[in-house]
Design a binder for these strands. Sequence first.
DNA 1: TTTTGAGTTGTTCGA
DNA 2: GTCGAACAACTCAAA
Length: 447
Amino acid sequence: MTTGLVWFRSDLRLGDNPAWAEATALHERVVALFVIDPGLWDGSGAARRNQLGAHLVALDDSLGQWGGRLLVRRGDPVEAVLEAARGADAVYWNDDVTPYAARRDRAVRSELDGRERVHDGRYVHAPGQILTSAGEPYRVFTPFHRRWAAEPWAPLPEPGEARVAGDPGGGVPDLPPAVMPGGEAAALVRLAAAVDRADDYDEVRDRPDLDATSRLSADLKFGTLSPRTAARDIGDESAGRRSLVRQLAWRDFYAQVMHFHPDTTARSMRREYDSIAWRDDPEALAAWQAGLTGYPIVDAGMRQLAAEGWMHNRVRMIAASFLVKDLLVDWRLGERHFRRLLVDGDVAQNVGNWQWVAGTGTDAAPYFRVFNPVLQGKRFDPNGDYVRRWVPELGDLDGAALHAPWMLGPLELETAGVVLGDTYPPPIVDHAEARDAAIAAYEAARG
DNA sequence: TTTTGAGTTGTTCGA
DNA sequence: GTCGAACAACTCAAA
């Protein structure tokens, strides 16, 4: 009787899981392992930790259908995997793209004497599969997407029977309840809900007041949802559905950027921008983190992040742009903050998008494109409902006027109970001046 | 090798 | 209020 060890990481599902599928097909006995890595655990906010805990409980449960348990270990992942691999004939996992994961996996692999079986399960098309006609990785999204969309793919068939080791099992940490029900079945329910709403996705996705995005980011991050299953179920029957699948292509795009350029976690993709004279301003950074910049749409987003571990995508761009361009604070500090708190915090996606906003990355926004937080607020939160939800001290201001409270007359402010500098801060920077300063700093770095 | 067309998400200014 | 142009040239990808 042979034994296969499946090392679960960011792929906490049994359906369309290539590592699981092969291990259960080839071995009479399978051991399912998850390692809680203290370094990653301590770097995660409560939202992500609790969600991970809920997913582990659910995965443990679903292994119970074959009398099995999920073996959960806490500690150095290399040691834990090698220990669990002692009695195994082969070790299965799905590949990851971050530099930390790549280093970790190399260390494990070097001790396994060829017993490792590494699969691609995190992306529709794994890094390296979509290349230019010259065999190079793409640096621009649109041609990448054309090639990506032309490449065939399909989720695996439903998983078959398995004989899963049942002992010792356990070890899932006892945690406060997660925001979302854990596990693969719950993720598929969320996918179905997103698919139902997908036809007008392209028209409403930028409206944080409507909360009309798919909300699938965390399931894709943990792998409770397979991106291939998602792409299949969304389909291409409407502009909204195609637009949603395109977001999965962005996810693959940034994964391959990270795969081929792992140093972009710490360095600008465009090297000249490593010399931008960022401001060292801990107070400004703290005000941004606390949602006290005096720009309501930014503050609403930062408070949603702190409270929910999630922020609407449009507001992520506005808040990120504000830190980088208005406060001229190094994008890496913002990236770190987002990554810690976001329930969907994913290195490749977070770094790719921050570098896009900062204008320092592959296929990035031009440096002179600076978001105006007041205009963005009025355009995408036209009635102010999103701000009202997260910045209640402005709640009695009427309509879109709440996006620039400092422009209001004393009577209007007084009627709404707003005292700038007391109940709500005045803007910590003047946007027009900050914009000019940012463009000047970028031009100086360009030489 | 050279050429050519094209490029997620914006803002501001002046007519 | 609405519209087009300027912003700044540059890099990428494919023919």
